[in-house]
Design a protein around this nucleic acid. Structure first.
Length: 483
RNA sequence: GGCGGCUUAGCCAAGCAGCAAGGCGACGGUCUGCAAAACCGUUAUGCUCGGGUGCAAAUCCCGAAGCCGCCUCCA
């Protein structure tokens, strides 16, 4: 398969370091607030990457960190820790804040069918590993002390600017932050921060009591769980110039190696012309989405309509478009389940198309085109083989189509006055449909059989009042929740 | 000031040199007691604009305009 690599700026052929196996590290959430759906685009992307690799037969080890310390509110390495700040604000301990928002994060992730990474690692539980990594960096001569703590000397790493293609000479030092006169280079950053007595979370270290710089955790934990050379590192595009650039520098300073082979970055979800962000005041969470009548699966579908590397427009219109598309897919599934598998052979070209698309740098939109071809042709052929193929694709799409289209069929006999069965009718409905609704549907069919259209229409109204719509077919009807 | 990205139909969005995928929406038709679903058809002689290279350009090159992100924490 091919994957775009930020380091080389082109689609590279993906060759795993160990045949058949893939290690992925994903920059996870900083658990001091609810994650918004802009954040979740990144995790849907990472999850889809994992699913694609598994679909193509790789054994994937997916590692994700949870940042619960060391992420400062400014990059001057002197600001408040986000967790500390929120803890003070809410009058709680940092651990309580972290625990609460971590739990909330994974609850939302589960709603979005994001598979839990094989390893979820918390920064605070890896302080010894971080200290060890920093010690190696220092021993290799890449660090120096200042009043702030231990600082990474980016001048010692000639390739420092390669990932972001920064032109350090032209960068305006201190254009937006004050200059620390003790720094050797404007891009130098803290590995271990000391002399911050107000910081709530502190640990002893060779450099004094303090806490790790933000970038250290990802280097330390990715290396711990995936080794000193691993396949893929994912994150948002905003991480390229600072976080990942620094991480890469640390990796090299500690190990002497290019640790990460493929760097992959997702573009932002954009609202109108702006990104979604806390300071923009346009955050939308998964719960808010649900309140607006958009299912998590609908949002996930929206994410799958665009390439992960392209900005995606998040508007009321694009959302409802996605939600409607998903509904169409689910409707097809409900119908298709009533059909026999006639001939699976005709689905082969579409299966191939899907596979080729996702193997080409995860071109999910192209894969969706194959899905819709199957819907169209499956409908024409009335062949469940189409649905079987789509369910197979859903291992990648992660829309939960199987569950969403679940249907129970209630069959019953219709008899004449002398108790002779004259027909077998059915009512199909999703699990959880109230029995009352099914009963009304049955009653309505009887009215229809009696050609009592007024009664039938009246009953349809009653069913609608209970939140369900009826669709008639030859020998029965199906009821489903009103869209 | 530096780096990066985006501009394709009403909307979302693929395509990265060889007849402009797909979805949503809209409109017309078939089916239906009426609907819904489904099916059939229509919806970009053109891809921000101007040059250039090629037999051939939405795709490559040069230039312009507009929009955005990062360089402070941010997916």
């Amino acid at each position: 398969m091919k994957l775009y690599n930020t380091l080389t700026r082109r689609k590279d052929e993906f060759v795993p370091l160990v045949p058949g196996k893939v290690g992925i590290y994903t920059c996870g959430p900083t658990v001091y607030l609810f994650a918004h759906i802009g954040n979740f685009r990144a995790y849907v992307f990472a999850d889809t990457l994992r699913r694609v690799l598994e679909y193509l037969g790789y054994e994937v080890k997916h590692v994700m960190n949870v940042t619960d310390v060391g992420h400062l509110t400014s990059d001057e390495d002197t600001g408040e820790d986000k967790l500390d700040k929120e803890a003070r604000l809410e009058g709680k301990k940092p651990e309580e804040i972290a625990q609460f928002y971590e739990q909330a994060f994974f609850a939302d992730a589960a709603k979005l069918s994001i598979l839990r990474p094989n390893v979820v690692c918390r920064a605070t539980e890896h302080i010894p590993e971080m200290i060890e990594l920093v010690r190696r960096i220092e021993a290799n001569g890449f660090a120096y002390r200042t009043a702030v703590g231990l600082i990474f000397d980016t001048g010692k790493y000639p390739e420092y600017a390669l990932l972001s293609r920064l032109n350090l000479a032209e960068q305006q030092a201190g254009a937006r932050t004050r200059v620390d006169p003790e720094r050797r280079n404007p891009s130098d950053f803290a590995l271990w921060i000391t002399n911050q007595p107000n910081h709530l979370m502190q640990w002893d270290s060779p450099w004094g009591r303090g806490f790790p710089g933000w970038h250290v955790e990802c280097s330390a934990m990715s290396i711990k769980y995936l080794g000193e050379r691993f396949d893929i590192h994912t994150g948002g595009i905003d991480h390229i110039p600072v976080h990942h650039t620094n991480e890469r520098a640390q990796n090299f300073a500690a190990t002497g190696k290019e640790v990460v082979v493929h760097w992959m970055h997702n573009a932002f979800l954009v609202i109108g012309d702006a990104r979604m962000g806390k300071s923009e005041g346009n955050l939308v969470t998964v719960s808010e989405l649900e309140k607006r009548g958009v299912s998590p699966a609908g949002f996930r579908y929206l994410c799958q309509t665009a390439l992960y590397r392209m900005p995606l427009s998040f508007t009321a219109e694009s959302l409802s478009s996605a939600q409607n598309s998903l509904r169409g897919l689910v409707d097809f599934g409900r119908n298709a389940q009533g059909w026999p598998v006639k001939d699976a052979a005709w689905t082969e070209p579409y299966r191939q198309e899907f596979k080729d698309a996702v193997a080409d740098d995860m071109n999910i939109p192209q894969g969706l085109a194959a899905v819709w071809s199957l819907v169209r042709e499956g409908n024409q052929r009335q062949d469940r083989a189409a649905w079987d193929a789509i369910l197979d694709f859903d291992r990648v799409l992660g829309l939960g189509l199987g569950k969403l289209s679940e249907t129970q069929v209630h069959e019953y006999k219709v008899s004449d006055s002398s108790n002779v069965t004259i027909a077998v009718r059915f009512v199909a409905s999703p699990p959880g449909t109230p029995a009352e609704v099914v009963a009304l549907a049955e009653k309505r069919q009887a009215a229809r059989d009696a050609r009592d259209w007024d009664a039938a229409d009246h009953l349809r109204r009653d069913i609608l009042d209970r939140g369900y719509v009826v669709e008639d077919t030859k020998d029965g009807c199906s009821v489903k929740p009103r869209p």
